[in-house]
Structures are given as C-alpha cells and as structure tokens.
C-alpha cells in the first residue's frame, strides 16, 4: 500500500527508520529531516574543507621527506572528505534549488558554520601532530557514532571517511610519539600544543546537555541521524585519550580531571562556552584569515569554472 497523505507518509517513514531501514536521496522525507541533514552534513563537509587549512600550513614544513608526503596525503584526504560530504549535501538541497556555490556563499557570509577547532591557531609542528592525534581522534568518535545513521548516502560517505581516518589517527600518533620520545625541546613543543588544544577539544563535542537535550539533538535522535549526546561522546573521548596523554608523561591544563568510579564518568573542568559561541560565529583567533583564504581562492578561480562551463557548452 503506498501512503498518500502527509501523515501516512510520515508514519511510513518513521516505521521504516525505526525498523533500521535507510532513506535515500530520492525517497520521501519530512521537511525537517531534510533540513536537519543539510545543516549537519554541510557543516561537516565545510569543516573538512576548512580543516585542510590549518594543517596545510605545515605541509611544506613537515620535518622529513616521509612526513612531508604523509601530511600532504592527509590534508588531501580532508579535501576528499569535504568532497564526499558536500556531494551528499548537494543532493539533499537540489530539490530546494541550492548548490555547492550556495553553500560556499553561506560559508563566506557566516550563515554556514564550521567546527570550532578549525578556527584555532596551529603555531608549531606539534600542533600538526596534535590535530592528527586528538582532533582526528575526536572526529572518529563522532563519525563512528553516525555510521548507522538513517540517511544512507551519509552513511556511505562516513564509511569511506572512517576508513581513512584510521590512517589519519596513526599519522598523528606517529608524529606525537616521535616528539614524546624526542629531545627536551620536542617534548616541550608537544606539551605546549596539548595544553593549547585542550579547551578546543572539549568544545569539539558541543555543550553538555545538563539533563536537558536541545530540540535539535532530540530531533536528530528521533530521526536516527545520530544516536549519542554531546556529553556521551566527550566521555568516550576521555576514556580513550586521557590515559594515553598521561602515559606519555604529558599534563592537561585541568588539575581537576579524574575518573569518578562511582559515577562511571570523567569529572572535568568545563571550557568557556561563551568563548565557544564566539569562536564558531567567526570570532576565533584565525577565523577571518582562514575564511579570507577560502574566499580569495574561490573568487580567483571563477574564470576557471566559467571556462570549464564554456567549453562544455561549445562542445555540445
């Protein structure tokens, strides 16, 4: 029986995803499901594209030939992940008449946000290592959680992405371990980078719910777009990385952090969430510079995209 009214369609849709069914781009979907997905996936995609910029700063400077090649491949993957995610978002926004160009324009005007971590400075080589180890580590946690998302094209993109993120995490670990096992100067560089990145890493997962889940999160969970809360994900991150940070003899800029056996969770000092809002709204230390870089390169290449299009039209 094919559902006809909106309510029947919605009921069929919910039944399908509740039974583990997957939605494709051309399937019927509620408008707010589409809106949520576009918001989430375009932000994810743009974060990958913007995330290439801080690491790209270290591509030529990587200290050995092998590291130069590895980080070039890593940043290339980030652009590739951006490509996958933007394609998924583009198919979702096509019925609304929107395109990749609109997403870029939204990025330039600040309507489309990107992850807080990519607004930050990466002043030393150790920052490149910490980004690979901990930022990618955090990203793997959020992306793994979404692998089973109800939206099949997003899931397919995430499967490709997660496979490559494993290489990224190893790439980061390898840089970090070399520094940790290195000279006094190298260890100091690493410690400074960990200290510098810690608040941004906490912020990466978003504000804690404090017992009250936002309507956005609620909707994402109802629609099986995601399955865990910000705080649950942050706790998974602590489980995996806090012990390792200590095993390397590094310290965290949070003397209160500890695992509470009774509560079964990590107790930690909250970052400044007002600062978080400032950062993601484009007032981070490198927000303006990185957006300018993206905007400039996009505008300068307009003639190239025009040429490609001209060519096609002439060829037909």
């Amino acid at each position: 029986m094919i559902a006809q009214t909106h309510d029947e369609k919605l009921a069929a849709f919910l039944e399908k995803i509740d039974n583990g069914g997957k939605i494709e781009a051309d399937d019927w979907m509620p408008d707010d499901y589409r809106t949520q997905l576009i918001k989430l996936i375009s932000m994810h995609g743009m974060s990958e594209i913007m995330g290439a910029l801080p690491e790209k700063e270290w591509v030529p400077k990587a200290p050995t030939l092998r590291r130069k090649l590895a980080i070039m491949a890593k940043v290339q993957d980030e652009m590739g992940h951006g490509q996958l995610l933007l394609r998924v978002a583009e198919d979702l926004m096509a019925p609304l008449g929107k395109t990749r160009e609109d997403m870029l324009n939204d990025l330039f005007t600040g309507r489309l946000k990107f992850h807080n971590v990519f607004h930050m400075e990466a002043p030393t080589w150790a920052d490149a290592g910490v980004i690979g180890w901990l930022v990618d580590g955090a990203a793997i946690i959020t992306q793994t959680m979404s692998l089973d998302t109800s939206y099949a094209p997003y899931s397919r993109a995430l499967h490709r992405i997660c496979a490559e993120e494993k290489f990224h995490a190893q790439h980061g670990e390898s840089i970090v371990l070399a520094l940790a096992e290195g000279t006094e100067q190298q260890r100091r560089m690493l410690q400074d980078a960990v200290t510098r990145w810690w608040p941004a890493l906490l912020m990466f997962f978003g504000p804690p719910e404090g017992g009250k889940i936002s309507s956005n999160q609620q909707m994402n969970m109802r629609y099986k777009i995601r399955s865990q809360t910000n705080e649950e994900l942050r706790q998974v991150f602590f489980d995996k990385y806090v012990p390792r940070i200590f095993h390397l003899g590094l310290t965290l800029p949070d003397p209160t952090i500890r695992y509470d056996e009774a509560a079964g969770q990590w107790i930690y000092q909250q970052p400044d969430w007002d600062e978080f809002k400032q950062i993601v709204s484009g007032h981070g230390p490198r927000s303006v510079q990185r957006l300018d870089l993206r905007k400039l390169s996009y505008q300068q290449a307009q003639w190239v995209r025009d040429a490609l299009l001209n060519n096609t039209q002439q060829a037909i």
Binding site: A25, D26, M93, T99, R100, E101, R305, L309
Partner: peptide, 8 residues
C-alpha cells in the same frame, strides 16, 4: 534529483 551546481 538533478542539480546543476555551477552548471556542472
């Protein structure tokens, strides 16, 4: 669903 992003 057929978009023509940048005409591509």
């Amino acid at each position: 669903e057929q978009a023509k992003p940048n005409g591509f």
